[in-house]
């Protein structure tokens, strides 16, 4: 890499001569190579999913949840350093709580993402700290309807109709682009996201994985909840069937 040995990659408070912050870029690398997370904004809600590589057969199935609730109506999943993700979630929860306390209403997604991004950005301004090694999807349903954002280690964020972060995000995004995102329901979304997760995953290269999925929609009355295990199972079975059919066609 061009940055190595130049001395410009040792601190986030030093720019390289061509105006880059290498530490921030390295942090993004940490996020790129971790398990895939997908977020989908539907017509009637949102769907979040994460591909959890099974690190050990001794891990309990279904334990070690990765998708977190920030408030009744907001979910978050990140790809990268797990502890960084949990720390960010803690901060976001505090923001959501204090907003509720002060204004007596749930925090809008727009306000929340702004605060979360500002927090991450602060970690790119000082030499004494390291940026967050995570790409994060925040999705929720507020009074303005469903919304979905992605925050990067730099503190920049964008709103999306659907996005993916982590390993294989390019392929996942290509697949997401094929969906009719203006009319899709969360129920259909669950099926599609499961399909994409299974499609992108390479069993031979990455080993087995567990799919964790949450949603907000009419079925959950606006609350962020895990997708019922039965529906998740259906979605995964359908996903596997679709993959097999596609293989046969080839």
């Amino acid at each position: 890499m061009s940055s190595i040995g130049t001395g410009y990659d040792l601190s986030v408070s030093t720019y390289s001569p061509d105006g880059r912050l290498f530490q921030v870029e390295y942090a993004a690398k940490a996020a790129e190579n971790a398990g895939l997370a997908i977020g989908l904004k539907c017509a009637d809600g949102i769907v979040l999913a994460v591909e959890k590589i099974v690190q050990s057969k001794l891990l309990v199935k279904g334990a070690n949840r990765r998708i977190m609730s920030l408030d009744n109506h907001v979910g978050m999943v990140s790809s990268g350093l797990l502890a960084d993700g949990r720390h960010l979630a803690k901060r976001a929860r505090e923001e959501a709580q204090s907003y509720r306390d002060q204004y007596g209403a749930p925090m809008t997604m727009k306000a929340l993402i702004e605060r979360v991004a500002m927090y991450e950005h602060a970690y790119t301004c000082y030499g004494s700290v390291r940026p967050f090694g995570i790409s994060t999807i925040l999705a929720g349903v507020d009074k303005t309807g469903p919304s979905l954002y992605v925050v990067e280690p730099s503190g920049s964020y964008y709103g999306y109709r659907a996005s993916a972060v982590g390993k294989g995000k390019q392929l996942a995004k290509t697949e997401l682009e094929k969906l009719d995102l203006s009319s899709i329901t969360v129920k259909q979304g669950v099926m599609e996201v499961a399909r994409i997760a299974h499609l992108v995953h390479d069993d031979n290269k990455d080993g087995n994985f567990e799919l964790e999925m949450t949603w907000i929609g009419p079925e959950t009355k606006g609350f962020h909840e895990h997708v019922p295990s039965q529906l998740l199972q259906e979605a995964e079975e359908a996903a596997k069937r679709a993959l097999e059919e596609a293989m046969e066609e080839d």
């Binding site: 949840r65 977190m68 609730s69 408030d71 929860r93 709580q97 509720r100 306390d101 962020h224």
Partner: peptide
């Protein structure tokens, strides 16, 4: 009421497994 609303979120929403 505000305290208990907050308690409900910390206890029922953050750990919703």
């Amino acid at each position: 009421q505000r305290l208990l609303d907050e308690l409900e979120i910390t206890e029922e929403i953050y750990d919703n497994d």
